[in-house]
Amino acid sequence: MRTFLYSLRQGLANLRRNWLFSVASIATVSACIFLFCLFYSIIANVRGIVYTAETTVGITVFFDKDADDVRKAEIRDAIISKGGVKEVVYTSADQAWEEFKTDYLGDDAEELSAAFADDNPLADSDSYEIFLEDIEDQESMASYISGLPGVREVNYANTVVSVLKSLNRVIYILSAVIIGVLVAVSVFLISNTISVAAAFRKRENEIMRLIGATDFMIRAPFVVEGLVIGLVGAIIPLCAVFFIYRRVMDYFMAWLSGFSSDAGLIGLVPLERIFPELCAYGLIFGAGMGFIVSFFTIRKHLKV
């Protein structure tokens, strides 16, 4: 405990002494973790949209005109036996017509539909809607279903899937590159700060060495310094992200309310769900980087 308090005091004194280097290191770590949080949020939201798509966008299967109920049941069984199917929903022609009226005819539904009387314009539009476990399997499942006897047409949102997939990949690569560069800069700056602190305390460390201080006692203040740089460098961007995310979310939801029909598909991951994850990763990232860099830098500088 005494050693810990001594190291803590000396570590903070180091920070105060080289405040300019300390501020530069904290700023770089902050920038690094801010970008990490930013990209993490984007990736998490894209994943959220993909998840929504997985649960709401399905494959629609239309049947041949002469397909009877037995044939339709065989198609259903063949689809389920392929695996990876979460749900198969049958929509009859009458249900399809009702949904069409509600979705597209709006207030004029009564008037316009009266013209069709009992003649259902979607008479051959009874269908299966198939929801898969993984949206990425849609393409292969669609091509499988197309080959089944009695199937007239297969519709699926392949554009949505491929766009989401490539968008996620681009963001992932971009974030990895930018964060990688920033981690390198942070490592360099923290290492520099610790080196300067070691130079400042060269005489003190020499005396400590000759008096009989242990390696741990000599190194601990520098590790504390690195740890504080990492932690402060993580806390600042996390606070910023907390407020920015909330503002963006309010703005986005207000903007989205103008497009009510698509609002179900495009929604942001709630702050309460994403922020604890960001805090955990940000603090581990910051503290870990500070600890590791300072530990190895001081090993290089102090021959005990």
Partner: peptide, 18 residues
């Protein structure tokens, strides 16, 4: 080594005070 160094006391020409 630290334990050994605690058994000796060192004094230098330039004092080496903080």
């Amino acid at each position: 080594i630290p334990r050994f160094r605690r058994s000796i006391g060192v004094v230098f020409q330039d004092f080496r005070l903080l």
